[in-house]
Simulated assay, not measured.
Amino acid sequence: MSARPVLPLRILVAATLAAAGIGVSAPAHAAPGSLREGLFGQQGRYDGRRFSAPPVARYVVEDGGGFILDRSTPRPMVKFEDSAEVWVLQPQPAPRGDIIYKNDLGEPVLRATRLGGLTVFTRQRPSGAAAALVAGATPLRLQTLGPEALLQRLAQASARASRAARRLIPFEADASPETAPLVADAAMVAAEAVVRLAADSEGRQVLSGVDKVTLVEGRRPGASLRGGVILITVTPEDGMAGRPSSERILAAAGAR
Protein backbone atom coordinates (compact mmCIF):
# COMPACT_ATOMS: atom_id res chain seq x y z
CA MET A 1 0.00 0.00 0.00
CA SER A 2 1.45 3.43 -0.93
CA ALA A 3 2.33 5.83 1.85
CA ARG A 4 -0.18 8.58 2.60
CA PRO A 5 0.16 11.76 4.68
CA VAL A 6 -1.27 11.14 8.15
CA LEU A 7 -3.39 13.66 10.05
CA PRO A 8 -2.25 13.42 12.85
CA LEU A 9 -0.59 10.00 13.26
CA ARG A 10 -2.77 8.77 16.14
CA ILE A 11 -5.88 10.67 17.06
CA LEU A 12 -7.10 10.04 20.59
CA VAL A 13 -10.50 11.51 21.26
CA ALA A 14 -12.15 11.69 24.68
CA ALA A 15 -15.89 11.71 25.17
CA THR A 16 -15.80 15.23 26.55
CA LEU A 17 -15.12 16.76 23.13
CA ALA A 18 -18.02 18.36 21.29
CA ALA A 19 -20.18 15.95 19.27
CA ALA A 20 -21.12 16.50 15.65
CA GLY A 21 -23.91 14.85 13.64
CA ILE A 22 -23.74 12.56 10.59
CA GLY A 23 -26.79 12.33 8.36
CA VAL A 24 -28.07 11.81 4.87
CA SER A 25 -30.81 14.10 3.68
CA ALA A 26 -33.84 12.91 1.76
CA PRO A 27 -36.44 14.95 -0.08
CA ALA A 28 -39.87 15.63 1.35
CA HIS A 29 -42.49 13.08 0.43
CA ALA A 30 -46.17 12.36 0.38
CA ALA A 31 -47.73 9.22 1.74
CA PRO A 32 -48.19 6.56 -0.97
CA GLY A 33 -51.52 5.08 -1.99
CA SER A 34 -51.70 1.33 -2.49
CA LEU A 35 -48.51 -0.71 -2.52
CA ARG A 36 -48.92 -1.34 -6.27
CA GLU A 37 -49.49 2.36 -7.01
CA GLY A 38 -46.54 3.31 -4.86
CA LEU A 39 -44.25 0.88 -6.66
CA PHE A 40 -45.46 1.17 -10.24
CA GLY A 41 -47.58 4.33 -10.58
CA GLN A 42 -50.93 4.62 -12.29
CA GLN A 43 -49.57 3.42 -15.64
CA GLY A 44 -47.68 0.42 -14.29
CA ARG A 45 -48.39 -2.93 -15.93
CA TYR A 46 -46.64 -6.28 -16.19
CA ASP A 47 -45.15 -6.97 -19.62
CA GLY A 48 -42.77 -9.84 -18.85
CA ARG A 49 -39.90 -7.60 -17.81
CA ARG A 50 -38.70 -6.51 -14.36
CA PHE A 51 -40.36 -3.29 -13.25
CA SER A 52 -37.85 -0.52 -12.65
CA ALA A 53 -37.56 2.03 -9.86
CA PRO A 54 -35.26 5.05 -9.54
CA PRO A 55 -31.68 3.94 -8.78
CA VAL A 56 -31.89 5.89 -5.52
CA ALA A 57 -35.30 5.97 -3.87
CA ARG A 58 -37.10 6.32 -0.58
CA TYR A 59 -39.47 3.58 0.55
CA VAL A 60 -41.96 3.34 3.41
CA VAL A 61 -42.71 0.13 5.27
CA GLU A 62 -46.30 -1.04 5.66
CA ASP A 63 -46.13 -1.08 9.47
CA GLY A 64 -44.23 2.20 9.81
CA GLY A 65 -40.80 3.65 9.18
CA GLY A 66 -38.88 4.13 5.99
CA PHE A 67 -35.51 3.75 4.30
CA ILE A 68 -33.43 4.87 1.34
CA LEU A 69 -32.21 2.23 -1.12
CA ASP A 70 -29.28 3.28 -3.30
CA ARG A 71 -28.66 1.01 -6.30
CA SER A 72 -26.52 3.53 -8.19
CA THR A 73 -23.24 1.80 -7.29
CA PRO A 74 -22.01 -1.78 -7.84
CA ARG A 75 -22.73 -2.54 -4.18
CA PRO A 76 -26.28 -1.42 -3.28
CA MET A 77 -26.72 0.40 0.01
CA VAL A 78 -29.62 0.98 2.37
CA LYS A 79 -30.11 3.45 5.21
CA PHE A 80 -33.03 3.21 7.62
CA GLU A 81 -34.50 6.47 8.87
CA ASP A 82 -34.15 5.54 12.54
CA SER A 83 -30.39 4.93 12.26
CA ALA A 84 -27.30 6.75 10.98
CA GLU A 85 -25.73 3.52 9.72
CA VAL A 86 -25.55 2.79 6.00
CA TRP A 87 -25.67 -0.94 5.20
CA VAL A 88 -23.68 -2.14 2.19
CA LEU A 89 -25.47 -5.05 0.52
CA GLN A 90 -24.57 -7.99 -1.68
CA PRO A 91 -27.24 -8.88 -4.26
CA GLN A 92 -27.81 -12.58 -4.92
CA PRO A 93 -30.29 -14.29 -7.28
CA ALA A 94 -33.22 -16.10 -5.68
CA PRO A 95 -36.02 -18.39 -6.96
CA ARG A 96 -38.67 -16.98 -9.33
CA GLY A 97 -36.29 -14.31 -10.60
CA ASP A 98 -36.16 -12.48 -7.25
CA ILE A 99 -33.05 -10.80 -5.83
CA ILE A 100 -32.02 -11.03 -2.18
CA TYR A 101 -29.81 -8.28 -0.80
CA LYS A 102 -27.65 -9.51 2.10
CA ASN A 103 -25.44 -7.77 4.66
CA ASP A 104 -21.77 -8.58 5.31
CA LEU A 105 -22.76 -11.52 7.50
CA GLY A 106 -24.81 -13.06 4.69
CA GLU A 107 -28.14 -12.21 6.35
CA PRO A 108 -31.08 -11.05 4.17
CA VAL A 109 -31.98 -7.38 4.45
CA LEU A 110 -34.17 -6.90 1.36
CA ARG A 111 -35.90 -9.09 -1.20
CA ALA A 112 -36.96 -7.66 -4.56
CA THR A 113 -39.39 -9.57 -6.78
CA ARG A 114 -39.24 -9.56 -10.57
CA LEU A 115 -42.52 -7.57 -10.52
CA GLY A 116 -40.97 -4.79 -8.47
CA GLY A 117 -42.25 -5.72 -5.00
CA LEU A 118 -39.86 -5.12 -2.11
CA THR A 119 -39.73 -6.84 1.29
CA VAL A 120 -37.53 -5.61 4.13
CA PHE A 121 -36.14 -7.76 6.96
CA THR A 122 -35.00 -6.22 10.25
CA ARG A 123 -34.60 -7.27 13.87
CA GLN A 124 -38.12 -5.97 14.47
CA ARG A 125 -39.46 -7.63 11.29
CA PRO A 126 -37.62 -10.99 11.00
CA SER A 127 -40.35 -12.47 8.79
CA GLY A 128 -40.34 -9.44 6.50
CA ALA A 129 -42.62 -6.49 5.77
CA ALA A 130 -43.70 -4.99 2.44
CA ALA A 131 -42.21 -1.65 1.41
CA ALA A 132 -43.66 0.87 -1.06
CA LEU A 133 -41.77 3.30 -3.27
CA VAL A 134 -42.34 6.96 -2.43
CA ALA A 135 -39.95 9.00 -4.57
CA GLY A 136 -36.38 9.47 -5.68
CA ALA A 137 -33.80 10.34 -3.02
CA THR A 138 -30.30 11.69 -2.50
CA PRO A 139 -27.51 9.11 -3.08
CA LEU A 140 -25.80 7.68 -0.01
CA ARG A 141 -22.21 8.89 -0.09
CA LEU A 142 -19.35 9.50 2.30
CA GLN A 143 -18.91 13.15 3.21
CA THR A 144 -15.68 15.01 2.52
CA LEU A 145 -13.94 15.75 5.82
CA GLY A 146 -11.00 17.81 6.99
CA PRO A 147 -8.90 17.15 10.13
CA GLU A 148 -11.17 19.16 12.45
CA ALA A 149 -14.33 17.51 11.13
CA LEU A 150 -12.77 14.08 11.60
CA LEU A 151 -11.94 14.95 15.21
CA GLN A 152 -15.54 15.99 15.74
CA ARG A 153 -16.88 12.75 14.28
CA LEU A 154 -14.55 10.66 16.42
CA ALA A 155 -15.58 12.74 19.43
CA GLN A 156 -19.23 12.06 18.67
CA ALA A 157 -18.59 8.33 18.38
CA SER A 158 -16.60 8.30 21.63
CA ALA A 159 -19.24 10.32 23.46
CA ARG A 160 -22.06 8.05 22.30
CA ALA A 161 -20.17 4.87 23.18
CA SER A 162 -19.14 6.29 26.56
CA ARG A 163 -22.70 7.25 27.45
CA ALA A 164 -23.87 3.73 26.64
CA ALA A 165 -21.06 2.12 28.64
CA ARG A 166 -21.32 4.69 31.47
CA ARG A 167 -17.56 5.16 31.39
CA LEU A 168 -15.00 6.60 29.01
CA ILE A 169 -14.37 4.64 25.82
CA PRO A 170 -11.85 6.60 23.74
CA PHE A 171 -11.56 6.19 19.96
CA GLU A 172 -8.14 6.06 18.28
CA ALA A 173 -7.61 6.32 14.52
CA ASP A 174 -4.87 6.46 11.92
CA ALA A 175 -6.22 8.54 9.04
CA SER A 176 -5.04 10.47 5.99
CA PRO A 177 -7.05 13.14 4.15
CA GLU A 178 -8.11 10.43 1.69
CA THR A 179 -9.24 7.95 4.31
CA ALA A 180 -10.80 10.39 6.81
CA PRO A 181 -14.39 10.06 5.47
CA LEU A 182 -14.38 6.26 5.75
CA VAL A 183 -12.68 6.31 9.16
CA ALA A 184 -15.31 8.73 10.46
CA ASP A 185 -18.11 6.55 9.13
CA ALA A 186 -16.55 3.39 10.59
CA ALA A 187 -16.26 5.12 13.97
CA MET A 188 -19.98 5.92 13.92
CA VAL A 189 -20.77 2.30 13.08
CA ALA A 190 -18.52 1.09 15.92
CA ALA A 191 -20.35 3.40 18.33
CA GLU A 192 -23.65 1.91 17.17
CA ALA A 193 -22.29 -1.55 17.99
CA VAL A 194 -21.29 -0.40 21.48
CA VAL A 195 -24.77 1.03 22.07
CA ARG A 196 -26.28 -2.28 21.05
CA LEU A 197 -23.91 -4.15 23.36
CA ALA A 198 -25.13 -2.02 26.24
CA ALA A 199 -28.77 -2.83 25.50
CA ASP A 200 -28.85 -6.34 27.02
CA SER A 201 -27.23 -8.25 29.86
CA GLU A 202 -25.07 -10.52 27.70
CA GLY A 203 -23.84 -7.57 25.68
CA ARG A 204 -23.05 -5.57 28.81
CA GLN A 205 -20.89 -8.42 30.02
CA VAL A 206 -18.90 -8.24 26.78
CA LEU A 207 -18.79 -4.45 26.98
CA SER A 208 -17.33 -4.57 30.49
CA GLY A 209 -14.11 -5.84 28.91
CA VAL A 210 -13.88 -3.08 26.29
CA ASP A 211 -11.41 -0.27 27.03
CA LYS A 212 -11.20 1.53 23.70
CA VAL A 213 -11.93 1.41 19.98
CA THR A 214 -9.08 1.59 17.45
CA LEU A 215 -9.49 2.09 13.70
CA VAL A 216 -6.73 1.13 11.27
CA GLU A 217 -6.28 0.52 7.55
CA GLY A 218 -5.84 -2.98 6.15
CA ARG A 219 -6.26 -5.16 3.10
CA ARG A 220 -9.71 -6.36 4.13
CA PRO A 221 -12.41 -4.79 6.30
CA GLY A 222 -12.92 -6.55 9.59
CA ALA A 223 -13.47 -6.36 13.32
CA SER A 224 -12.04 -8.10 16.37
CA LEU A 225 -12.01 -7.81 20.15
CA ARG A 226 -8.69 -8.55 21.82
CA GLY A 227 -7.13 -7.31 25.03
CA GLY A 228 -9.94 -4.89 25.70
CA VAL A 229 -9.64 -3.25 22.25
CA ILE A 230 -12.30 -3.31 19.56
CA LEU A 231 -10.11 -3.21 16.45
CA ILE A 232 -11.85 -1.98 13.29
CA THR A 233 -10.02 -2.50 10.01
CA VAL A 234 -11.04 -0.38 7.04
CA THR A 235 -10.14 -0.71 3.35
CA PRO A 236 -10.51 2.79 1.87
CA GLU A 237 -10.44 1.76 -1.80
CA ASP A 238 -13.70 -0.16 -1.25
CA GLY A 239 -15.64 2.90 -0.10
CA MET A 240 -18.38 2.18 2.44
CA ALA A 241 -18.02 -1.52 1.63
CA GLY A 242 -14.54 -1.17 3.13
CA ARG A 243 -15.67 -1.16 6.75
CA PRO A 244 -17.58 -3.73 8.83
CA SER A 245 -21.23 -3.26 9.74
CA SER A 246 -22.40 -3.04 13.34
CA GLU A 247 -23.71 -6.60 13.01
CA ARG A 248 -20.26 -7.83 12.04
CA ILE A 249 -18.67 -5.96 14.95
CA LEU A 250 -21.14 -7.57 17.35
CA ALA A 251 -20.39 -11.00 15.87
CA ALA A 252 -16.65 -10.39 16.27
CA ALA A 253 -17.23 -9.48 19.91
CA GLY A 254 -19.15 -12.73 20.44
CA ALA A 255 -22.41 -10.92 21.16
CA ARG A 256 -24.61 -12.51 18.47
Results as ranks from 00 to 15, higher is better:
Leu145Gly: 05
Ala129Tyr: 02
Gly106Tyr: 03
Leu140Tyr: 10
Ala199Thr: 11
Leu133Lys: 05
Pro126Phe: 07
Ala135Ile: 12
Val195Lys: 13
Gly218Tyr: 00
Asp200Lys: 01
Glu178Phe: 11
Ile99Leu: 13
Leu140Asp: 02
Thr179Gly: 02
Tyr101His: 01
Pro126Ser: 00
Leu142Arg: 04
Pro147Trp: 06
Ser208Asn: 12
Pro139Val: 04
Arg196Lys: 09
Gly209His: 08
Pro181Trp: 03
Gly209Lys: 02
Thr214Gln: 12
Glu202Arg: 11
Ala130Asp: 13
Pro95Gly: 06
Ala187Asp: 03
Ser176Asp: 06
Ala132Gly: 11
Ala180Lys: 07
Val206Pro: 08
Leu215His: 04
Ala190Cys: 06
Ile100Ala: 11
Val213Cys: 01
Ile100Trp: 07
Leu215Gly: 12
Gly97Gln: 02
Ile99Asn: 03
Leu142Thr: 10
Thr144Asn: 11
Ala190Met: 10
Leu151Ile: 14
Gly203Lys: 00
Ser158Ala: 15
Ala132Glu: 06
Ile100Tyr: 09
Arg163Pro: 11
Ala191Asp: 08
Leu142Tyr: 12
Leu115Glu: 14
Leu105Val: 09
Ala149Ile: 04
Gly117Ser: 12
Arg204Ala: 06
Thr138Ile: 15
Ala187His: 03
Gly203Trp: 04
Arg153Lys: 13
Asp185Arg: 09
Ala132His: 01
Ser158His: 08
Val109Asn: 03
Val216Gln: 10
Ala199Val: 08
Lys102His: 10
Gln143Asn: 12
Ala135Asn: 15
Leu140Cys: 09
Asp174Met: 14
Glu192Gly: 13
Glu217Asp: 14
Gly116Ala: 05
Pro139Leu: 08
Ser208Lys: 03
Asp211Ser: 14
Leu118Lys: 02
Arg141Met: 13
Phe171Lys: 07
Gly128His: 01
Val213Met: 07
Phe171Pro: 02
Leu182Thr: 04
Ala132Asp: 03
Val216Asp: 03
Leu140Pro: 08
Glu172Tyr: 15
Ile99Pro: 04
Pro170Cys: 06
Thr122Val: 01
Tyr101Cys: 05
Gln205Lys: 14
Phe121Ile: 01
Ala135Tyr: 06
Thr119Trp: 08
Pro170Leu: 04
Glu107Met: 11
Pro147Lys: 04
Ala190His: 00
Met188Ser: 15
Ser127Arg: 15
Ala131Trp: 05
Val213Phe: 04
Thr122Glu: 04
Gly106Phe: 02
Ala198Ile: 05
Val206Met: 00
Pro147Tyr: 00
Ala173Asn: 08
Arg141Ile: 12
Gly209Ala: 12
Leu168Gln: 15
Asp211Glu: 13
Ser201Leu: 13
Arg196Ala: 01
Arg204Trp: 01
Leu115Asp: 13
Glu192Trp: 09
Ala155Gln: 10
Tyr101Gly: 04
Pro177Glu: 08
Leu133Phe: 09
Leu207Ser: 02
Val183His: 10
Arg166Ser: 11
Val120Leu: 05
Glu217Gly: 14
Asp98Cys: 05
